[in-house]
């Protein structure tokens, strides 16, 4: 018979409602990032439960793998999609909803039947027996002896998935990418040295230093590439001639 100690019970009744509430909240909140956060919290509470029940390794690995890696990647993608992009509820793939519901029901049924088969009508061996030679050692022994075949199959599946993602995201370059060294050489050996040191700042004889007024080149003409392309496209570009002084005294008075 399993005995439950008081601290464990207290922790359970404190954390379990929190976990359930955040699991429900995950489905109800509007922003995808909040949803992901609540899911991460549910994972952490699960890990705490594992640890409380002496499955230390499982709990820690749950945090490292699921919360630390999988959820983080997920969060990453959500953030790249956009800060305030709200989820659209329209189906992008036709018939996605029935497929998803069928798959979810099937998976649920599979889980229930498997767990039922594993637990119903059997006597639990007990943690003391299972952990007799150390939690990690016992897990490793099972994983690399009895269950080595499923373990390998799952790893092959994951590697295939990773390869598939790489193939889908891959794009072939027709020319090799120029290295920094080659770019620098090309810049200096090219036809014009104008771009060698980057785009021009406000010019040598500049008459205005606002971002929408082109810089002046040494010969007094305007340098159009000193203006941001965005401003140029918007048409927010001023002529620098209007800031010209009426008369520039170019003569040098000799010092006495």
């Amino acid at each position: 018979m399993l005995t439950i100690q008081t601290p464990e019970a207290v922790m359970f009744w404190f954390l379990a409602p929190l976990a359930v509430i955040s699991a429900i909240g995950m489905l109800l909140v509007k922003k995808a990032v909040h949803s992901a956060l609540l899911l991460a919290w549910v994972m952490i509470t699960l890990a705490i439960f594992y640890i409380a029940q002496d499955a230390l390794f499982l709990g820690i690995v749950q945090i490292v793998v699921y919360t630390g890696a999988v959820m983080m990647l997920f969060l990453f993608i959500l953030m790249l999609v956009g800060v305030d992009a709200s989820d659209s509820l329209t189906e992008t793939i036709r018939g996605l909803r029935p497929i998803a519901i069928t798959a979810a029901l099937g998976f649920g049924g599979l889980l229930v039947s498997l767990i039922g088969r594993a637990t119903l009508g059997r006597e639990a061996a007990g943690l003391v027996d299972a952990n007799s030679e150390g939690n990690v050692q016992a897990l490793a022994k099972l994983l690399f002896s009895t269950y080595v075949w499923p373990f390998e199959v799952v790893s092959a599946l994951l590697i295939t998935a990773a390869l598939g993602a790489m193939v889908l995201a891959h794009h072939q370059r027709s020319v090799p990418r120029a290295t920094q060294r080659e770019q620098a050489i090309a810049r200096f050996r090219g036809a014009s040295l104008g771009s060698a040191a980057g785009l021009p700042n406000p010019g040598v004889f500049a008459r205005h230093n606002a971002v929408d007024v082109p810089a002046l080149l040494p010969d007094g003409s305007a340098a159009p590439n000193s203006i941001s392309a965005t401003l140029k496209a918007r048409g927010d570009m001023l002529e620098s001639t209007q800031f010209e002084l009426s008369e520039v005294d170019n003569t040098v008075t000799e010092e006495k």
């Binding site: 390794f57 919360t67 990690v136």
Partner: peptide
């Protein structure tokens, strides 16, 4: 018994602070 893994786990949650701050 898995102390070093525990440190890795805790650091990986710590990253959430940085990511969420940015977002």
């Amino acid at each position: 018994p898995v102390g070093v893994l525990y440190i890795l786990a805790v650091t990986s949650i710590g990253v959430y602070g940085v990511v969420l701050a940015g977002w």
